[in-house]
Amino acid sequence: MTKISMLQNEIQKETETSLLGFWIYMMTDCIVFASLFAVFIVLRNNTAGGKAGSDLFSLSFILTETIILLTSSFTSGLALLAAQRSHLKQTVIWLCTTGLLGTSFLILELHEFTKLDHSGNSWRGSAFLSSYFTLVGTHGLHITIGLLWLFATLGYLYKKGLNEVSVRRITMFSIFWHFLDIVWIFIFSVVYLLGVI
């Protein structure tokens, strides 16, 4: 076996291991969110005399955010599909679309947070508000990290193109991004929908 093919062989064997490891990491991340959900649910009525969810959340706003994120989850899947079929241009297009949608989501969320803060309903207001900002904010932090990851991936694609390693990384990214949307389903349902009724 030549040196190059030996190293290539190693990289291929590594993919299966890496993907399982990343999946297990993703599970631990889900447990992080589960803990934050537990805290939110327990403290949801501790408004210390201040505003509750029904006073603060806008149904149309939240629907917009949700559809944007759902679409970005879909496009991240398409990016992976293109990468698996070695279509570099399609991969980049769908990754960029995912990034733009994700950034829009983040901007909307930051707008909502700022509005709440300026109207006197920041995380310092009550246990309910602390839980809200932390749960939704942690999700937003994950989105931010995902966008940084996406940007770095585009850089890697620019330098090295689509090889075993880049396809593996795009696979891991799409797993990450899909899970973020799944967590958002529960934020949408438990925090916002159950919060306004």
């Binding site: 408004t47 210390a48 207001g125 246990a127 602390s130």
Partner: peptide, 15 residues
């Protein structure tokens, strides 16, 4: 300044 476990602001130390 959050209020997860504080005595003020509706925090719950038992959590």
């Amino acid at each position: 300044g959050t209020h997860f476990f504080t005595t003020a602001g509706g925090g719950n130390a038992m959590m």
